[in-house]
């Protein structure tokens, strides 16, 4: 009876203690057993981060915040990260998320994987992004990637057209005939293409201007502007993509020999026009491909925010 009671109580108390400990670790998304590595960071604005909030890498929870302390220059955050997550040099930390629906969390942007790993207990630099900016960093590389692919696609289409146009005479005649047949469409295509590119370039220019003007200004405002630019850019890219597809269809139909030969032979001017237009576009595209940084430098700035 006596030993029985002692055993019961002992088991209950120990079990409760263990469950309490493990439960908290479980809910904090810490490894149930074993050690988590502790780091620190200093944020200008902690955005309401609290002890227990998640630490997130690429949207995956890897640890939690263990301490938030107010310091003169902002908030001093201590957080733990699962052992197998290597915080390499170049890693930055930022507070992200809003209010209730998506909780506040500490976002880590990992440094290059081959860089040396931060010692446990190091101070991870803050990336000083507001939430909108964090959003942008996620978006900008995607948009940039699309610019590349779309422009490459367009360029290839245009090159193919050029090859056709500068090929052997008989083919050229055919081509000219075909082009003439659908002159309206092609012209429109090229014009649209140019318009698109101009819009893209204008946007990028605008972006550069915005970026230059915001220095010292409210970061949030600039970020919002930047975001709008990106959205517009994205729309223009859509347009460019459809254009390229149209051009490709056109070229395919030329290749398959559709169209009326005779009409083309009687009208050289169309060829010249078409060639000039395509050459101009080609120059832009080639230039873009050879030296994309000239266009995208300002976009890249986003990464250095």
């Amino acid at each position: 009876m006596k030993i029985n009671n002692e055993l019961k109580i002992g088991l209950a108390v120990v079990l409760a203690g263990v469950v309490f400990y493990l439960g908290i670790r479980f809910l904090r998304d810490l490894p149930l057993f074993g050690q988590a590595t502790v780091y620190h960071t200093e944020l200008v604005n902690s955005n309401g981060l609290a002890v227990g909030n998640a630490v997130v890498v690429n949207g995956v929870g890897v640890g939690s915040i263990t301490e938030v302390r107010l310091i003169l220059t902002g908030a001093y955050i201590t957080f733990s990260v699962e052992e197998d997550v290597a915080l390499t040099e170049g890693t930055t930390a930022s507070a992200g998320g809003f209010g209730f629906v998506s909780s506040v969390q500490l976002n880590l942007t990992l440094g290059p994987p081959d860089a040396p790993v931060y010692e446990p207990g190091s101070l991870i630099p803050a990336s000083n992004q507001s939430d909108v900016l964090a959003d942008l960093t996620d978006r900008a590389p995607a948009v940039l990637g699309r610019i590349d692919t779309v422009l490459t696609g367009s360029s290839q289409a245009i090159s193919a057209a050029r090859d056709l146009l500068t090929g052997p005479e008989s083919q050229m005649q055919q081509t000219l005939a075909s082009i003439r047949n659908s002159a309206g469409a092609f012209e429109a295509v090229l014009l649209a293409e140019q318009g698109s590119m101009q819009a893209v370039l204008k946007d990028i220019e605008q972006l550069a201007i915005t970026l230059e003007s915001f220095a010292g200004d409210s970061l949030g405002g600039a970020a919002t502007a930047l975001k709008e630019v990106l959205v517009r850019l994205s729309m223009n890219l859509d347009l460019l993509e459809t254009t390229t597809v149209e051009l490709n269809t056109l070229l395919a139909s030329i290749n398959s020999g559709q169209g009326t030969l005779g009409k083309l032979v009687t009208d050289d001017s169309l060829y010249v026009e078409a060639h000039a237009a395509s050459a101009a576009l080609r120059r832009i595209l080639e230039n873009f491909e050879e030296n994309p940084n000239q266009y995208l430098r300002h976009l890249k700035l986003i990464d250095f925010f």
Binding site: F20, D29, S103
Partner: peptide, 15 residues
């Protein structure tokens, strides 16, 4: 969801 919004103070407060 529970983890995302977990506040370590909760269990201690309950305790």
């Amino acid at each position: 969801g529970a983890r995302e919004h977990f506040d370590i103070f909760g269990p201690y407060f309950g305790l």
